[in-house]
Design a protein around this nucleic acid. Structure first.
Length: 489
RNA sequence: GCCGCGGUAGUAUAGCCCGGUCAAGUAUGCGGGCCUUUCGAGCCCGUGACCCGGGUUCAAAUCCCGGCCGCGGCACCA
């Protein structure tokens, strides 16, 4: 079994592109076959490839865990295409058409042959050489593959295999202006699938007519067409995948977006920046499978899958978003507590949290949401620290008294367990949370330990959700600002 | 408009080819319980779907026809 993934290197790949890529590589792996990566960069003018895109696509695929065994770049295979073209012309399967586009269209709709269709192969070969030598300008000549003139779909009728592109005006990023005669997608892909012995093609449904077109060429050449599986579109709830939409958004609001990798988009780079694990994407795509129907993946599903993958290996820390001060009188605990990073995974280690204790009084910050649930005389457990009874609730201050440290006691009293942050020893935390095309910036006070993280680290903020550290800015010894991205609950 | 492909719970998917074992499985979501450093994870219980209408048949999610809805294609783009 030999499969291939064949992107146009004109932009970043997104979740939708990941579907054929992952399935192709997975099937090849499953049957001990070979997976091919082929860059289809034969349009220097309209979908102009960019040098960065080749690199970016390789990087994204590697990150996704897609392994390929062979790699090709079509713009470096031009002489192969020219050779096959000559063969095809000699066999009478293709001809050089000098009609204008409009004239040909009219004839085609009347199901009539254009005057060049019946020229003999030698004349066509000469004309093709003239094309190659630069005799014709853009639009003056094309090579057409002979098909059924009565085919119900007009686009299939004698489709274009080569056209002229003025590469002095539209240079190709890899081969510059070396060639002016460029194969179309159907010619180049069709030829390569045969020459590369591709056995199974997995591609989007939008290519279904192309299979039909290419089969005419295959029959002229006496080749057999590979198995084709058309895949439906993949949507990602709440995120923009469309290449053209992303491009125009960035163009219209250059300051609002980071680039194609902005966390509000559905590119692979975006998902990576967002903190989604590659295995999450693989799992979901394999779950969706090879159906022809469109599928839309919900963020809930992504979050659930991702959470399962990372939860056990992710440190848990505390941060308070709408801090309210709490004083705990008669405090009989230590001035420092050691808390494991994860209750079930001891290998993540432990950290020590310095408390603000003064004259037997403990000072902490708690979440205003939790304060609202409190009543005077009710009790609550400060997670991993101690149990307290509330004595007074003022606007900006909750007064309480220490009643013990025991977790068992808290269990018996069925106390709510809330998280907290030390009043003196803490850091500022910003969480960027994408909501559609907006980004909400949530501010919090977090425990000091957050400043020991490095960008890229993922942590769980207890009772809030998972975040990915973007930046740790230490402006002075006292003030640390940690910037992060919200991943999911 | 023409050509093609689809429509199973909120979402995604299994089953459809080879009709009965499907009073429809799984994941996620939602509700509840146990457990726990959490409104998380895990375990347990519950919730919820075959687009509509005809036909074939002893029997239809499954086969046939029509309708509706959705998607794709109709380029000298890929």
């Amino acid at each position: 079994m030999r499969t291939r993934f064949a992107p146009n290197p004109d932009f970043y790949i997104h979740l939708g592109n990941a579907r054929p890529a992952i399935l192709s590589s997975e099937y090849a792996k499953m049957y001990g076959g070979v997976m091919i990566l082929r860059f289809e960069d034969t349009d220097p003018k309209i979908k102009t490839p960019t040098v960065e895109a080749y690199k970016q696509i390789r990087e994204d695929l590697t990150w996704l865990g897609v392994e390929w065994h062979e790699e090709y770049i079509q713009s470096l295979r031009m002489s192969i295409y020219y050779g096959i073209a000559k063969d095809l012309i000699s066999r009478g399967g293709a001809y050089v058409d000098l009609c204008s586009q409009e004239d040909f269209r009219k004839l085609k709709l009347e199901r009539r042959a254009c005057p060049h269709r019946n020229a003999d192969p030698n004349t066509n070969l000469e004309l093709f050489d003239k094309m190659l030598s630069g005799h014709f300008k853009e639009g003056e000549a094309v090579v057409r593959v002979k098909t059924d003139l009565n085919h119900p779909d007009p686009s299939v009728v004698d489709w274009v295999a080569f056209r002229i592109v003025d590469t002095s005006k539209h240079p190709h990023p890899i081969v510059g202006d070396r060639y002016v005669v460029w194969p179309t997608y159907n010619f180049a892909a069709g030829v390569d699938d045969h020459l590369m012995n591709v056995t199974h093609i997995l591609r989007g449904r939008e290519h279904s007519v192309n299979t039909l077109k290419q089969m005419f060429m295959y029959s002229h050449m006496g080749w057999t067409y590979p198995e084709v599986i058309n895949l439906g579109r993949l949507n990602l709830e709440g995120l923009i995948l469309s290449k053209s939409k992303i491009k125009s958004l960035i163009k219209e609001n250059p300051d609002a977006f980071k680039g194609p990798e902005d966390i509000r988009f559905g590119t692979i780079a975006s998902l990576r920046n967002r903190g989604i694990d590659p295995q999450t994407i693989r799992t979901l795509i394999l779950e969706v499978g090879i159906k022809q129907t469109d599928a839309s993946i919900s963020w809930d599903n992504i979050a659930a899958t991702n959470r399962k993958l990372i939860d056990n290996f992710t440190k848990r820390l505390m941060a308070v978003f709408n801090p309210v001060k709490m004083v705990v009188r008669n405090y009989l605990g230590p001035e420092e507590v050691i808390i494991p990073y994860h209750p079930d995974n001891a290998s993540l280690g432990r950290r020590s949290v310095k408390l603000s204790v003064n004259d037997g009084t403990l000072y902490v910050m708690v979440e205003s949401k939790d304060v609202r649930a409190l009543k005077v005389n009710s009790a609550v457990r400060l997670m991993e620290l101690c149990n307290v009874r509330v004595t007074a609730i003022n606007k900006d201050l909750v007064e309480a008294e220490f009643i013990g440290r025991d977790l068992t006691q808290a269990r018996e009293l069925r106390l709510p367990i809330i998280h907290w942050v030390s009043t003196d020893v803490n850091v500022h935390l910003e969480v960027l949370k994408p909501e559609g095309l907006e980004i909400n910036v949530l501010k919090a006070v977090g425990e000091k330990e957050l400043s020991n993280l490095t960008p890229g680290d993922r942590v769980q903020l207890v009772r809030f959700g998972f975040i990915k550290i973007a930046d740790v800015i230490k402006t002075s010894t006292d003030y640390v600002n940690v910037k992060s991205i919200y991943i999911h609950d």
